[in-house]
Amino acid sequence: MNVPELLEAAGLLVPAEIATENDITVNDVWDYLAHDEWEVAFGLLEELGGVRPVPLGFWEKLATAAEQMQLERSAAWCHWRCYESRNGVIRADLTLRPAGESRRQTPFSGAGVLRPMWSIGNRAPMGGEALDIACLWVEFRPALGPGERSAVRLAPLAPSRWRHLRPGQLITMHEDRTVGGTAVVLEVQGPTATVAP
């Protein structure tokens, strides 16, 4: 499929009654597609996909369209949303320790590249603290640096080990044995997609 076909197919997966805070609907997408404004239509679809859960196929089509348009960060975001559809959403408010108090001395990319360890209350077989790995996406910012704070999304490598998390729970981020940041869980949602065997 080419870009307009992918965007049209994604648009068909958005319920007509969904509207953004700015009253954008899928009808606005059709107008931009009719005028070959693909990037604008793509951006509107991305926004509509954040209003409420949409089918996994929506994000898959948008990811492919973003790759064809060479929108690297948007493609990464759509793949991230595919992961969340399959495995669930975990959002937290993360505060990094200042540069002098942790290993981190420079900002890191917010686009899901960093895979830190997290203390989330799990125990190791011998009874000690177990650390679990999750990729980290910084919301609404390209990067996050020492001492800074932002809402983040987490993509665990073993999602089943994270199912016990609840909003308000305190978890800690580790890039080595020291605590690199603390986070308060904001939201935990289960998967929205049915994964085929």
Rank of each mutant, 00 (worst) to 15 (best):
70 Q>T: 13
70 Q>C: 10
117 M>P: 09
153 R>L: 05
142 P>N: 13
20 T>I: 05
69 M>D: 00
46 E>Y: 01
146 P>D: 01
64 T>M: 10
95 T>K: 09
115 R>D: 11
144 L>W: 03
118 W>N: 04
61 K>C: 06
150 S>I: 03
90 I>Q: 02
79 H>T: 14
40 V>I: 11
62 L>T: 01
129 E>L: 14
137 W>K: 10
67 E>S: 14
51 V>H: 08
56 L>M: 12
119 S>A: 14
91 R>D: 05
74 S>A: 14
20 T>F: 02
126 M>D: 15
136 L>Y: 02
63 A>N: 09
99 A>C: 09
131 L>P: 10
49 G>P: 04
84 E>P: 06
91 R>H: 03
127 G>I: 04
27 N>V: 07
33 L>N: 03
34 A>I: 03
113 V>M: 13
105 Q>P: 05
144 L>H: 02
102 S>L: 04
147 G>C: 09
18 I>S: 05
51 V>L: 06
155 A>M: 11
147 G>K: 03
127 G>P: 00
122 N>W: 08
81 R>Q: 15
127 G>F: 02
67 E>V: 11
13 L>A: 02
76 A>N: 08
32 Y>E: 01
44 L>T: 03
113 V>H: 10
114 L>T: 11
148 E>V: 04
54 V>H: 08
82 C>R: 14
41 A>Y: 00
121 G>A: 06
73 R>C: 06
52 R>G: 09
117 M>S: 14
54 V>G: 10
20 T>E: 00
12 L>E: 15
149 R>D: 00
138 V>E: 00
52 R>Q: 15
129 E>M: 13
130 A>T: 04
45 L>F: 00
98 P>F: 04
102 S>G: 08
65 A>I: 06
84 E>A: 12
84 E>S: 09
56 L>Q: 14
42 F>R: 01
32 Y>G: 01
123 R>Y: 10
23 D>Q: 12
86 R>Y: 05
33 L>A: 01
29 V>F: 02
56 L>C: 10
77 W>D: 07
16 A>G: 05
12 L>T: 09
140 F>S: 14
65 A>D: 12
41 A>E: 00
94 L>D: 02
125 P>M: 02
96 L>R: 03
156 P>H: 00
132 D>E: 12
155 A>N: 10
50 G>T: 02
37 E>A: 10
18 I>A: 05
153 R>I: 03
12 L>M: 13
133 I>T: 13
71 L>N: 03
75 A>H: 07
146 P>E: 00
18 I>V: 11
30 W>K: 14
149 R>P: 04
150 S>R: 11
149 R>V: 04
66 A>N: 02
26 V>T: 05
35 H>K: 08
95 T>M: 07
92 A>E: 01
78 C>W: 04
103 R>P: 07
57 G>A: 15
150 S>G: 04
73 R>V: 12
22 N>D: 15
117 M>N: 13
127 G>E: 00
101 E>I: 09
157 L>A: 13
19 A>R: 05
12 L>K: 07
140 F>C: 10
79 H>I: 13
77 W>C: 00
117 M>I: 06
68 Q>G: 04
70 Q>K: 15
151 A>M: 14
44 L>N: 03
131 L>Y: 14
154 L>P: 01
143 A>R: 14
90 I>T: 03
31 D>N: 08
132 D>W: 02
103 R>W: 09
35 H>G: 07
